[in-house]
Design a protein around this nucleic acid. Structure first.
Lengths: 192, 192
DNA sequence: TCTTTCACTTGACCTACATCAAGTGAAAGG
DNA sequence: CCTTTCACTTGATGTAGGTCAAGTGAAAGA
């Protein structure tokens, strides 16, 4: 029963659980560890898992026609990651999920989540709240991309992710804000 | 009790309701009609409502520093719209929601939704499923913007919204795919 | 009917950012 | 200690898409 504290605390921010419920919930989770650059999920497969990050940091990205990497999401401790596009619509994934730092996760399979929701429907509320937040963040990211120049998007990145900015190479930050490494380098130079 | 059929059908795709529950649910909704170009919501206020569209079409957009319009979302019959960023985090909205066609909606206030969820917790499931879908669509939109050129984004727009493409001026389509009207006009010319 | 409006087009020019390729410098590995 | 690697830089040049401003043409108002 060790290693489940972070997720239980997270859940209990939104719903309360009896001891038996906690035990049942944890029984559905699998602990996994990934070293830096290990894949949690690869393009091509249908994504049938959700990952709760207990420590570390992962990126969710796609490779375009020219093999350029575009980071969709950065997820850190206390967040869930998955390819929702694939998970929700049962379509092959176009995304990779990769550890940026050494990372430990709790894996919840789609089937186990269904079992959880069937047995403890209060978890519907938990996931509803979390998904609404993720959706709100996602919408904000769209407005940023549509309406802000690269330099301003970088400012926002720093605000949001300053705690872990150090784990990211310039190349990765460039990919997250949506510019090439070369351009990003010049952008930084211009700021100084 | 007329006018509620579409929303009840939508809900019953995901959860089943007794007659009393239906009556209670509908009692929390307000029917509203908007003419073309009417605002469902304006920038500045905290968004405290969700709108279910029974007919018509709306756009969800922001104005940037230079007053350029950027359409975040297009919503048609059988979809919910709101500014989730504002709704979820209780922050002033940066978005407008505006009718593109004459539109009828059912309005559910945040408080009424809480009352609904408290009384009929099965609605947590309904909103969880809908939000997951909306999130998946939103993620797809980000990957499209990051990885596809404007012409390909237009193709996707046509696939997705061909039924209502006629309601949109070129300017609005340009704004949705993220280019200027002038550039969009040239893009269309190049295709012919 | 005349005129105003409004969506769209088009030309000339501009800029943010991409591409490619050749560096540099520091760290990692043998 | 040497060398390979890898992140980053930098120069030269290319391009997608932006800006501004002057059209056109059709529809809506009066």
């Amino acid at each position: 029963m060790t290693g489940y504290t972070p997720i239980l605390q997270n859940v209990e921010k939104h719903i309360s659980l009896s001891e038996e419920e906690k035990v049942f919930f944890c029984s559905l989770l699998q602990q996994r560890q990934y070293h830096k650059k290990a894949y949690l999920h690869r393009e091509g497969n249908v994504c049938s898992q959700l990952f709760f990050i207990t420590s570390g940091c992962v990126k969710n990205y796609l490779l375009d026609a020219k093999s350029n990497e575009h980071i969709l999401t950065i997820a850190i401790a206390d967040w869930w990651v998955a390819d929702y596009q694939s998970l929700v619509f049962d379509t092959p994934s176009e995304l990779f999920i990769e550890a940026v730092d050494p990372t430990t996760v709790l894996l919840l399979s789609k089937e186990n989540r269904e079992a959880l929701l069937a047995k403890i429907p209060r978890f519907e509320r938990y996931f509803r709240i979390l998904t609404e937040r993720a959706f709100a963040v996602s919408q904000q990211r769209i407005t940023d991309i549509l309406s802000l120049p690269a330099a301003a998007r970088y400012e926002k990145f720093l605000e949001h992710y300053h705690r872990i900015a150090g784990s990211f190479s310039q190349q990765q930050i460039a990919s997250f804000i949506g510019v090439t490494p070369a351009f990003f380098s010049r952008m930084l130079k211009a700021k100084r």
